[in-house]
Design a binder for these strands. Structure first.
Lengths: 113, 113
DNA sequence: ATCATGCGTTCAGATAATGAACGCAGTTTA
DNA sequence: TAAACTGCGTTCATTATCTGAACGCATGAT
């Protein structure tokens, strides 16, 4: 399943390091190789990424994932959408933390740690 | 699967409305009835929730989910842990938004919306 | 030539999530 | 009172999703 979370994360990582391998991507993302492969293909299918070959001196032939113009353009929107969603979660939690503090009779200005 | 996300959300919802039904909980959480049932049981199993019956005037006999003393105590920790995790995500995204703004040559003080 | 390495790809098996269907217990209707 | 109805928690076959070992291939090393 390709969610906004992985759309965002993969586009970001690929943009930073186009020669990244699927295995490395999987490791960074904390997901399996199979899922990584699936998500990359999905991003290629919808035209956000494209694949090209490149010669790697030390390593063998490898792929390179590049953001298409569409990918570059949509990445911003995807990121914004994802941020908005996360911001909402974050604010809800902040409110909950405040409630907990009030319930515990604390001063309310302590740091979460 | 019972994750911190659902530990937190369920404990919160149950605390606010102990007489909530599994179906209503499922709807609010955006998950299936089966998963809701599974998560509630898991929370009972680990001693964070307990079940008791109550008489509901209009409706039939129903259950009531109550936080145990352990549940009340651990809810704070679970919430804090979940917040910390979300805060990290949120901060990473904020940084990414900044990068996007810089790349787009914007002024950097626009609101996300 | 042979081996070793690392790549993307595949897919059988494991894991997780779904929601229709069930039995039960109150409430309403006939 | 009996029968139909409602909404509850529970179950579990089905479906969706994820995993990672194994494969073929291309390169570099021996």
């Amino acid at each position: 399943m390709l969610t906004d979370e992985y759309r965002y994360k993969i586009l970001k990582l690929v943009q930073e390091k186009p020669e990244i391998s699927q295995r490395e991507l999987a490791k960074v993302l904390g997901i399996s190789l199979g899922k990584t492969n699936f998500c990359l293909k999905a991003l290629v299918d919808v035209g956000l990424l494209k694949v090209s070959n490149f010669r790697n001196s030390q390593n063998k032939l490898a792929y390179m994932y590049l953001l298409t113009p569409k990918g570059i353009e949509e990445k911003t929107g995807i990121t914004m959408r994802f941020l908005k969603y996360k911001m909402q979660e974050y604010e809800n939690l902040q409110a909950e933390i405040e409630e907990l503090r009030r319930a515990a009779g604390e001063s309310g200005d302590k740091e979460v740690e």
